[in-house]
Design a protein around this nucleic acid. Structure first.
Lengths: 130, 130
DNA sequence: TGCCATAGTTACCAAAAAGAGAGAATTGGA
DNA sequence: TCCAATTCTCTCTTTTTGGTAACTATGGCA
């Protein structure tokens, strides 16, 4: 919807439906709960090992962590470095692309934090109305 | 993670885990595929009726549209106006909160559009590596 | 010899999300 | 009387998602 070269948001700009579809798919991929949490921890702590991340991200299972990390690696958001030692040591580190995604989501984080109260109130009001 | 008052993104700021959880839940709620698509169409076209939206949002089922609109209404992102006429006429219109969410997501849209190619390349490269 | 830690993978199962399609409510008008 | 138009609402089925737990591989250590 927005043109990449423009900073402002023009809701009436003509849209290439193919690009739109790809963008939507990409956002769906990347706005995933676990992806966001892993992204956050890697921003906070820098390079991390697998078990470190599984401790940092509350409630994630091994399976989900593996899946999430693979998907993020595939999308070029992080790099996975295997050190051929025993016991195994694998490190995960955000790429520039990963960092830029974190920054792009910053606006949404701020929005969510800023409007938490308003939304909780809206919900209460809605639920009260029946 | 980011403090609402700060504009810049400080990944090492102390975090209230309760707020963090709520923010995450909220983003999960709001970063939903259908929510984003509906948000977009309402930004583009302004006030819309139910069937209008179901035509505008490609591939959405009646059920999902109803569900999405209800959830957005509950969160205070849009208002639903029922005109007591026959046949029924129901209009949906974004609130200020809804518009501000659209703007917050603008950065992510731009990120996705800007980096589509890089991500597709990263994927190809990853898949080629086996 | 057997056990430990790390970083997975795999198989199986339960729960949740989403699609399809029918039905319901409304009431002026043919 | 019965239809038409609009906005749901309900049920049934399929798909997707996520969790649990067991298994793998490796070399050091007791």
């Amino acid at each position: 919807m927005p043109a990449a070269e423009k900073i402002s948001y023009d809701p009436h700009a003509p849209i290439d439906p193919r690009v739109e579809m790809l963008v939507n798919e990409l956002i769906g991929r990347v706005a995933d709960k676990w992806t966001l949490l892993v992204l956050e921890e890697l921003e906070d702590h820098g390079t991390c090992r697998f078990t470190e991340l599984s401790r940092l991200v509350p409630g994630i299972s091994q399976k989900m962590l593996t899946q999430t990390l693979r998907a993020m690696e595939r999308d070029g958001l992080l790099v996975r470095t295997v050190h051929p030692v025993v016991p195994p040591k694998v490190e995960y580190c955000l790429t520039d692309l990963g960092h830029s995604l974190g920054e792009a989501f910053c606006g949404v984080w701020i929005w969510a934090e800023t409007n938490l109260d308003r939304i909780e109130k809206a919900r209460s009001a809605f639920d009260a109305r029946g």
